[in-house]
């Protein structure tokens, strides 16, 4: 974990770190990763990962349309929109 790694994961996370906290966060992350490196010691051979403590299977829905048009409710909560669309700065493809 170095500054370059931190800047890569910061970009993946769409976060910027300013000069003053960059060093501190890099240091923190280093320590946290060192801390979680304790996991290396566990013998996990043939152990199935556990993604959710409920070892059950999912309930599903039948294929029915239940949603109503709530365009106004949604658009009025958005930071920027016109009467039809959410708006963001022009994306160049």
């Amino acid at each position: 974990m170095d500054k370059k790694t931190v800047s890569t994961i910061a970009y993946l996370s769409r976060l910027s770190l300013n000069e003053e906290n960059e060093d501190k966060i890099t240091e923190d992350l280093k320590n946290i990763i060192k801390f979680v490196d304790q996991l290396d010691g566990a013998d996990t051979n043939n152990i199935e990962p556990l993604a959710n403590p409920l070892e059950k299977t999912a309930k599903t829905r039948t294929d029915n349309v239940t949603a109503k048009n709530r365009k106004e409710v949604f658009l009025e909560r958005s930071p920027k929109s016109n009467e039809d669309y959410f708006l963001v700065p022009r994306v160049v493809e």
Partner: peptide, 26 residues
């Protein structure tokens, strides 16, 4: 399908923008 993979929003084509959107789709 009539509805979306994870919500009850409609999948029909050609509707006015953002009218077939459920809380989950958003």
């Amino acid at each position: 399908t009539d509805s979306k993979l994870f919500s009850g929003g409609s999948t029909s084509f050609g509707a006015e923008p953002n009218t077939h959107v459920d809380l989950i789709d958003l």
